[in-house]
Nucleic acid binder design. Sequence first.
DNA 1: GCTCATCTGCGCAATTTCGCACAGATCATC
DNA 2: GATGATCTGTGCGAAATTGCGCAGATGAGC
Lengths: 282, 282
Amino acid sequence: MSNWDDLRFFAALARVGSLSAAARVLQTDHTTVARRIAALEARLGVKLFDRLPRGYALTDEGAALTVRLGAVEEAVLAFERQAGGAGQAIRGVVRLGAPPAFASQWLMPRLAPLLDRHPGLVLDLSVANAISNLSRREVDLSLRLYRPEDKGLVARHVGRLTYGLYGRRDYVARGDDWRYIGYDGELSDVPQQRWLRELAGATGVGLMTNDLSAMLAALRAGMGVAAVPHVLAGGEDLVCLRDGPEAARDLWLVVHPDMRRSPRVRAVMDALVEATAPLRAG
Amino acid sequence: MSNWDDLRFFAALARVGSLSAAARVLQTDHTTVARRIAALEARLGVKLFDRLPRGYALTDEGAALTVRLGAVEEAVLAFERQAGGAGQAIRGVVRLGAPPAFASQWLMPRLAPLLDRHPGLVLDLSVANAISNLSRREVDLSLRLYRPEDKGLVARHVGRLTYGLYGRRDYVARGDDWRYIGYDGELSDVPQQRWLRELAGATGVGLMTNDLSAMLAALRAGMGVAAVPHVLAGGEDLVCLRDGPEAARDLWLVVHPDMRRSPRVRAVMDALVEATAPLRAG
DNA sequence: GCTCATCTGCGCAATTTCGCACAGATCATC
DNA sequence: GATGATCTGTGCGAAATTGCGCAGATGAGC
């Protein structure tokens, strides 16, 4: 057989029963899973799955093959375990850049499992925003709220931050005459800031900062209302007054192509993709 | 591990010891083998091979892994065997187009193993030359002495036919005043025909045909000299008077993309690639 | 019966991978 | 020492594969 990798797709689909679910497991697109299964069936001359409206069901032939497939999986796993022992453990420093508030208030705790899995790994989380520090190798990979245009970098879409207009529950209860909290300086043109200005209208922005954590602190202090990502506005104190679909930002994982080969960079990337899965759902 | 197929390359390279040899085994390019090995080593974080000037040698870690690798191979083979039994045997009609003389005098006997392997396969070998009968699905795949320009077709380079000026031993022994045998009509512009006219000079072509088999028959009957492919001029009767590098023709295996999925078409293609291997060497 | 979440399938653009041509190195043979 | 066969490595364009966006279908829950 000229492509053993199709078996990986067969195994995942057999296990979970739908293209979409298998895609999530394999961290790929459901159309890729469909093509790989079709290619495998064509190559073998065997129909492995029945296509149903709500998923793929193993045929009798497909089910019969899953025993052999299990043996392949076990053999590959044994190979990987031995390889894992033979090679150096994932160790060393990985420098990750991420937007400050997102990194400190959302991402950091979600990286705990990664460090648990790899005691030798040292994560250096840098909150600088400038893309240039990736090209200058100041960081190994970074999360960004905009897609880099540098063709020498690889960008993968890992999520979408949607925004809402939030305020503290008791603050907003006292009426419409709210103070709008916004960004200043170089951040005044980001989508959520434009949306906020629309909302503020003639009232205008009454408090400005360039730091989202400071903005969240101001919200929690009842100093006004602000456009912030839903995922950072947790807790009962803050309520969402209005959804802001036009303020949504895409989240990109950006890496230099050469760095992807590094096992430790690879491990961090995989953990980030896993951690950001909820930002891709829905 | 995210690409099990790299293990196939690891297995082949471990077995034969050089990129070039592994490429021949896998019917791919040596640079592809190199990339796959590099990708596997990067992913595992293990150096599997030492790069030597005359080939790749397994490292200690690589050698230790070949036992596990052997288990993967056996598991995949067991899967394939069961899949082969579960699915329909390769059966049905495959219609192959090929140049007439090449097909009847060189290719046909070399397809015997294919038919031995697949008793249910019926091969319909058509000697029409027109490319249109592939697009019109009059044949499933074809061998051609020119690359199709139709972007809807897939062409794979499978060999190179080199030509020589041949004559029967006793005919050429009697002197320089030879009769040149060439093509007529629409074949008068093919490269070997142009070369022949150069050789014939003022003497000109003394016997014309549009059929290479007839030309070979004329050669064997001692009726003159002709430019024919080396691979068709076997036997002690015919001797090569002069090599004709400028008359060389590339051989292409052409197929409609959809047809490649068909197991029986795939089986014939694989057999053709195998059969034409000597035409690619040297 | 309606709504929503989830599913599959299709077409197209983006990305990745492969094959090709070439260069340079090595080693066996003469 | 020269030559030829075989090897690996590099860069580039072509080919193949993947991801994305979208449409339509299905079925659970209300």
